[in-house]
Design a protein around this nucleic acid. Sequence first.
DNA 1: AGACGTACCTGACCGC
DNA 2: TGCGGTCAGGTACGTC
Length: 289
Amino acid sequence: MKQNAIIRRAFWKSKFLSHMPELPEVETIRRGLKNIVGRKIVKIFRSEKKLRLEPSLDFQALKGAKISEIFRRARYLIINLSNDLSLIIHLGMSGRITLEQEFKQLKHDHFACEFNDETWLVFNDPRRFGFVDLVKTKDLSRHKMLTKLGPEPLEKEFNFSDFFKKLRSKKTNIKTAIMDNHMVVGVGNIYANESLFDSGISPLRKTDSLTKNEIEKLIFSIKKIIKAAIKSGGSSISDYVDSHGNFGRFQDDFKVYGRPGGKCLQCKNLIQRIVQSGRASFFCNQCQK
DNA sequence: AGACGTACCTGACCGC
DNA sequence: TGCGGTCAGGTACGTC
């Protein structure tokens, strides 16, 4: 139906557009895609535009394969198939995955596959920082994007003793450090800023200057913020598919991100904006020391 | 070897 | 109204 495409367009023009696909977003999509397990792929679409990675294997190998499992590692969505192949999808900066009743190609649709129940999975990415790769499942762990990843923020591998060791061996600032995938995965610019505010730590602090107490607080804040974001982003994709139009709403909870010159919600001091490693940092220099 | 800067890309927004 | 410039950021990679 044409209406589906119109809804899809309206969805992206909403303020949800400013919500980057960080870990909570990808987790939300994974949950929203759970019910495609068992469906069989019958048709494949690929645009001629280059994405960040060229697929390792020909997408035609997807034909006839059944979806057997979907999981997430960092910001990578991994779909295992019945024929020992795996799809790896990364949304980059602007990627979207939707389920459609019909595939009517929109601008920036770069990959799509039809299932045996005539529904479509569509990957749309205006800026093409994302990618869709197809590899043998046994080669997954050797995939160059997956080999050097640090711990998942919500798993027990992201803990005080390991994080403490990594921070002590670094010479950079804490903001840049927590955005580094080797330290912990899935903490992008938004959550890095919000986590530092929540833990009262200035983004300017050198990693080896943090006290044990501050490191404990920071770990707690990162877990807390990401959990909260997953909770409030949980409606975006599945509700969209049902055409209910509920969008992720974690952006309403930003305390410092994107609020330069605004008043700190705790002390009324003005929020600062600086640039670190080429990325904007937002913080309150009263509340964050 | 680690730290930093830059390229990739399009759309939104701003000032003239 | 349009047009050019700037900004947004995840990740790999080049450079020092």
